[in-house]
Amino acid sequence: MRVAQIGSGTPEIAVLAGVHGDEPCGVRAVERLLEERPTVQRPVKLVVANENALERRVRFVDEDLNRVFPGDPDAETHERRLAHRLVEELEGCLTFSMHSTQSYADPFAIVDGVDETAARLCPQLPVTAMVETENFAEGRLMTEIDTIEVECGQQGSESAAQNANRLMRAFLTAVGVLPGDTVSRDLPVFRLTDVVPKEPADTYEVFVENFTEVEAGAPFAAADGNEQVADESFYPVLMSPYGYRDVFGYAAEKLEVLESPAAAD
């Protein structure tokens, strides 16, 4: 784990990258910020988490870091020990955690719940949606630390790296670390309701777009050519053929749209 700071004093804001070793977009954004060393209005802590996995270019060494919080300092696995150290390092900080995905090119935010902080900050980020994890957050950093996660784009792509930089700077501006103003936008909010399982097969297909409603009775995926049909309508989230081993992704419901403040006359 690598930890750096810009600005003097005790940080209440942190940026986290490299939770998964096959998601380098956030690391590039953090390294760029460290190279530039901009003048800040309040201190910020910058953390690159799973350096071992990043060096090997694998998602994790022993187990998924973002599924084992709060961790254990005496655990046998690298990620559980690292999770414990991260919780200690990030305690007291609102943390902005950057990820990427195999399922969706446009950035979106993930939160444990739509509290005042999420409702205020997420519409100021260049994201297309906000997803509330509710009952699917077990073992994630957000269960221990006040966290806003962002999916920056397609894993390993140049656009994800560019998005990570834009997202990080928008967040740091919104919380008063960087000077300037942000642009608020209307933001749809979704809540995860279920996982979408997939049976063992050689080939998988997904027929639907994430965040676009799937109507009851519509085919949405297939395993070895055998179609799966929606029992009821849902919104797919993080759905892809090969992004996860045992599931296609998640089903969600649409809660509301957070509207940006009306411009003054």
Rank of each mutant, 00 (worst) to 15 (best):
N66D: 15
N66A: 08
R67H: 09
R67L: 12
V68F: 04
F69L: 01
F69Y: 01
F69C: 04
P70V: 07
P70H: 08
G71D: 08
D72K: 05
P73I: 06
D74R: 09
D74W: 10
A75Q: 10
E76Q: 05
R80H: 04
L82T: 02
A83C: 00
H84Q: 04
R85E: 14
R85C: 01
R85W: 01
L86K: 01
L86H: 02
L86Y: 01
V87R: 00
E88T: 05
E88Q: 11
G92K: 05
L94T: 05
L94D: 02
L94C: 05
L94N: 06
F96V: 06
S97L: 07
M98I: 12
H99E: 00
T101A: 00
T101Y: 00
Y104M: 02
A105N: 09
D106R: 13
D106K: 11
D106C: 03
P107N: 09
F108N: 04
F108G: 03
F108S: 03
A109Y: 13
A109E: 11
V111Q: 07
D112V: 04
V114M: 15
V114P: 11
V114G: 06
D115N: 15
E116R: 12
A118F: 14
C122T: 03
P123K: 06
P123H: 11
Q124D: 12
Q124S: 13
Q124G: 12
L125W: 14
V127Q: 10
V127P: 02
M130F: 11
V131L: 14
E132V: 14
E132K: 09
E134Y: 11
F136A: 07
E138Y: 09
E138K: 12
R140Y: 06
L141W: 08
M142V: 05
T143N: 12
T143L: 08
T143P: 02
T143A: 10
E144R: 12
I145T: 06
D146Y: 03
D146F: 03
T147F: 08
T147W: 04
T147V: 07
I148R: 02
E151K: 00
E151C: 02
C152N: 05
C152H: 02
Q155Y: 06
Q155C: 09
Q155R: 15
G156C: 13
S157H: 14
E158H: 07
E158Y: 07
A160C: 10
Q162S: 11
Q162W: 11
N163Q: 10
A164G: 14
R166G: 05
L167T: 07
M168P: 01
R169Q: 15
A170V: 10
A170K: 07
A170F: 11
L172V: 08
L172A: 08
